[in-house]
Write a protein that binds this DNA or RNA. Sequence first.
DNA 1: CAAAAAAGAATGAACGTTCATTTTTATTTA
DNA 2: TAAATAAAAATGAACGTTCATTCTTTTTTG
Lengths: 192, 192
Amino acid sequence: MAKLQKSIDKKNALVKATIELVNNNGFHAAPISKIAKMANVSPATIYLYFDSKQDLVNKVYLEVKTAYTNFAFATYDTEMSVQEGFEMIWKRIADFKLKELDEALFLSQCDNTPIIDEPSRQQGIKHLQPLLDLWNKGKNEGIIKPISDYLLYAYTISPLSFLMLMQQRNTLKITNETIEEAYQAAWDAIRL
Amino acid sequence: MAKLQKSIDKKNALVKATIELVNNNGFHAAPISKIAKMANVSPATIYLYFDSKQDLVNKVYLEVKTAYTNFAFATYDTEMSVQEGFEMIWKRIADFKLKELDEALFLSQCDNTPIIDEPSRQQGIKHLQPLLDLWNKGKNEGIIKPISDYLLYAYTISPLSFLMLMQQRNTLKITNETIEEAYQAAWDAIRL
DNA sequence: CAAAAAAGAATGAACGTTCATTTTTATTTA
DNA sequence: TAAATAAAAATGAACGTTCATTCTTTTTTG
């Protein structure tokens, strides 16, 4: 009964503060003291919810990753055709990365640096399985190039991370047209 | 005359140590003391070569970025056809990212986090101009899709960063065949 | 033997974490 | 139901450590 009694609001405030500070300042400049201040909480309170700063960051990563993939696959149905299913998932992912910019940026920073530990990273990867399954189906049906999942990912999903980053740095304004062009490029890159 | 007398070897050792520590431990776990130890130098000596830790990291970034683009464009000639030129540059970049893994990983970490400051980032971007020029030529000739340079970059160069990361994490073994498939996907994504 | 370069020791500030208390919430008792 | 008590949650201050940087001294070099 102990843990459930603790305020979920406080935990959420800590998660939000961590994301914001890591995004804006980097992990190296996101000390516990600042996270606590931003969440309106005592530094000591953080240790009631998390074992350590590392544990905090791991858990925030997994929480955000889960929200991300849940959103991505929410409207997807394994009965869909490969092309239809891919477009659906791709556009949901694009939607998430551009609308939930903070969360997506945090994931990107975690995925490109050693700030989360290896087990958490492995855990996070698993969530993408439905997309890999779809690709296998597409390869079997001769619709998608018979190349490794890494290449398929590199040319469809990973470009979105770059575009997201450019948008956040105010270098690029992403419109519906941009999304459509990007989707077409993604599909062109992997379709047979 | 002062600066020129200082040992270039020591500076290079510091650059190398910085890259290695930031790659393996992250910027947050790459303290001056460790960088100094790894370069066989006193912490105080670092301040003879750099103004601060921030200055060190900025300069390492720009130095590596310069080496990267010098390599990328070394064999490129503006007289080449668009397709030929693009293949040349793309494959040189692939070469660099996969062979000079340490340097490329360091760049990727800098490009995805706030560890370098904004002026240095802006400076680093400029080095890619020849590629943008080539793309403009390709658009004018109706060879390349008339989409923004950001999209072209997202679907040709940025996928290489993902593949590089996967290779470093021992998740993917990149062969000549992989490179050829990746190049084809890149070209398919952006050609008209 | 100067002047430059490098070293190691020393500095205050800031870090993550823990500690001793206090405040809040829930449960028991009369 | 009101008061008393126990438990849980939260706190600010304090801890030892480590950080980036500076200071003083030694070593190297032309």
